[in-house]
């Protein structure tokens, strides 16, 4: 437990020791703002809710989260510090959890920086707080799922670019499988209802959707947690067998 905390602390410190963290946070906020206000027409909507804010998250995270996750293990491989880390008296699981938690906390911090948005909404109108809270929860879980996936792709390579591209592609599948225009297209092409529904069930869109509306279904939570655990577990196997 202590080892996990030590690893996480070092990882977090290394984010903020480099300009990458600040560049990331600024770009994160700019994109969030741009999509919510310009593309989503936040003000035209004229309703006190964050619909046009949350709706962009699955798409933005598709690019932003792999940018954080790509370095998790690829960097350790490239710098050869992996050898240092795995010859210290810690388990692979502790190392994975420590680094994952650090990345997730960092993303959580980035998400918290968007809080002025709901605060403005509260100031301007009288919004329903439920969907806001569950929306944020869903957004955080979704970021965690994407991060676990990009950590997984990162553990396979010493090249951050390869890691980034692979995880963007996987995250894109997770989004598109439940994106209505795509599912409708699949149906038109003659895919069976059951199949499309199954695919949509695997999609983050499907599970994030209901959370934006203020519903916390246990199945959605199970989905995100399973996805995260599966990715972390696979990372563990990869790092144990594929070291050199």
């Amino acid at each position: 437990m202590k080892n996990i905390a030590v690893i996480a602390k070092r990882e977090l410190a290394s984010y903020f020791n480099s300009p990458v963290a600040y560049v990331f946070l600024i770009i994160f906020l700019i994109l969030m703002g741009f999509f919510t206000f310009m593309m989503g027409g936040f003000f035209q909507y004229n309703e006190a809710a964050l619909t046009t804010f949350f709706i962009w998250h699955p798409w933005l995270y598709m690019l932003l989260v792999p940018a954080v996750g790509m370095r998790l293990w690829a960097e350790e491989r490239r710098m050869r510090t992996l050898e240092l880390l795995f010859t210290m008296p810690i388990t692979t699981t502790q190392a994975i959890l420590g680094k994952y938690i650090a990345g997730w906390l960092f993303l959580g911090f980035a998400i918290l920086l968007t809080l002025p948005m709901p605060i403005t909404v509260c100031y301007l109108g009288e919004p329903d707080l439920g969907p806001m809270v569950t929306g944020y929860l869903g957004s955080f879980l979704m970021a965690g799922a994407y991060l676990a996936i990009s950590g997984l792709t990162s553990s396979l390579t010493r090249n951050q670019v390869i890691s980034f591209i692979t995880s963007v592609v996987i995250c894109m599948f997770l989004v598109l499988a439940g994106y209505p225009p795509i599912t409708n297209l699949l149906l038109k092409w003659g895919a069976s209802n059951r199949l499309v529904e199954f695919a949509a069930n695997l999609s983050v869109m499907f599970h994030f959707e209901s959370m934006q509306r203020g519903v916390v279904d246990i199945r959605d939570l199970v989905y995100f947690v399973t996805l995260i655990l599966f990715a972390l577990f696979t990372t563990n196997i990869i790092l144990k067998t594929h070291r050199s």
């Binding site: 070092r10 410190a13 290394s14 050869r80 510090t81 050898e83 010859t87």
Partner: peptide, 13 residues
Amino acid sequence: GYLPENAPAYTDM
């Protein structure tokens, strides 16, 4: 204690 080849270290620290 282990000193690996090429002495790796976390360069950002």
